[in-house]
Nucleic acid binder design. Sequence first.
DNA 1: TATTGTTATACTCTATAACTATA
DNA 2: TATAGTTATAGAGTATAACAATA
Lengths: 147, 147
Amino acid sequence: MTRPAGSSPALDRIAADLTLALGQLLRRLRSEAHPGDLNLSQSSALARLEREGPMTTADLARAESMKPQSMKVILASLEEEGCVERQPHPTDGRQILFVLTPKGLEERRRRTEAKRKWLVDALGKLDPEEIDALASAIPLIRQLGDS
Amino acid sequence: MTRPAGSSPALDRIAADLTLALGQLLRRLRSEAHPGDLNLSQSSALARLEREGPMTTADLARAESMKPQSMKVILASLEEEGCVERQPHPTDGRQILFVLTPKGLEERRRRTEAKRKWLVDALGKLDPEEIDALASAIPLIRQLGDS
DNA sequence: TATTGTTATACTCTATAACTATA
DNA sequence: TATAGTTATAGAGTATAACAATA
């Protein structure tokens, strides 16, 4: 937006700067959460179940760059609160599909509200072109995470 | 870049998408670290000392959105490895300034290398315009974190 | 008394290792 | 035997609370 294409600093520098900016924003976001709010991993898992439909622990773990044992803990907490439910796998008796419940959909909205509100306020302080530049970068960040 | 200004989706949607994308990239980055590598908080603290010069625990904690007690743990680990050193405050006997050492500079480079390399590779898969769009967004992400 | 830093303790998130059950 | 899931345990990272020292 503000800089012509081709004049990008070296990838090295971008990588370092992105890492630092990312870490800081995440710590800041976490510090804005209310007690009882969902953490990033929980809301990310719910969001993925909403986007992609029922998934197994192992598939969710892979998608979220986690070990299955770690994802199990997250799913157990979500299950206990009624945000997800188990569903037997149609053909493979070993596998268990997890499904997002209507309550899960609602809880995700409600218990990420404080972080969302803080971030929306922070975004509101940017210029429209800056917001647009940031919005354009989001799919790219997601693409990096999927690499 | 690819979308004219003014057509941004609601800030709400941007906030939610950004949060998810950041969380995923963070988990992915962490999973690429080698044993013994610095974590995001440690390297971020070192980077800040490099940029801004000697700082106190309390100032660093504020800047990094942490409690002073938490920052103390991070500084203690860095001090033990010789990455930072204490320096008495010239006028206030209560305060202790932390200074980046030459070794700290070198360790930060060396022990963030795996994460950096993975991210540089991932960036390399993007188009030049996409890299440029991402680079433009980094100062904005940093600005959000400072809000 | 207000502020800087420290100590002690606990909680959250994620990992490794060992085990069970189905394929 | 390979794979999905579970259980148990441990580690990293950060928080809260109580304390000490200087201002």
